[in-house]
């Protein structure tokens, strides 16, 4: 056990054991829970991400929740429409990298909601990684209206 103790000491050499953080819980954070998005409009999707070392990349995923398959992790509970079949749902799947070895960064991505997509309940998921490979996620229930 003496060997064990001495060996496990030298190994705390600057190992990154912290996940990054991600939040829309500030004034400009977008979207907030239950936000209604209008077709044809452009919105700036904004979230703050931080890490103890180096931020690496992030992603935004907007997909429909017509079947109520999931829910968000925000404190608000939104009223969901009835379950329905998707015909031409909006799908936004994009990845981005964060350059310059930052420890804090604001995601700010303009997204235009197309005119021809299904309205209804949607889900917006952000995720962020740091250079080590730790990940943080958050997801928000939104609605797309006419």
């Amino acid at each position: 056990m003496i060997v064990i103790a001495s060996c496990s000491n030298d190994d705390s050499i600057d190992k990154d054991e912290e996940k990054p953080t991600i939040s829309v819980n500030y004034n400009e954070g977008f979207p907030q829970g239950c936000t209604q998005l209008t077709r044809g409009e452009t919105y700036n999707f904004r979230a703050k991400v931080t890490d103890n070392k180096v931020l690496a990349s992030y992603s935004i995923d907007i997909h429909h929740n017509f079947d109520h398959h999931t829910h968000d992790d925000q404190t608000t509970e939104c009223d969901l429409e009835d379950v329905k079949q998707a015909i031409n749902p909006f799908i936004f799947i994009e990845n981005y990298s964060i350059e310059n070895e930052l420890t804090s960064y604001e995601i700010n991505i303009p997204v235009t909601i197309p005119n021809d997509i299904d309205t209804g309940d949607y889900h917006c998921a952000y995720s962020v990684t740091d250079e080590t490979g730790w990940q943080a996620r958050t997801s928000i229930d939104v609605k797309i209206i006419e």
Binding site: S57, S59, I93, N95, S127, T129, G133, Q135
Partner: peptide, 12 residues
């Protein structure tokens, strides 16, 4: 199986 810091279609 190494978790990288990159994404494929929003999945790590």
């Amino acid at each position: 199986l190494n978790p990288t810091s990159n994404y494929y279609e929003t999945l790590q």
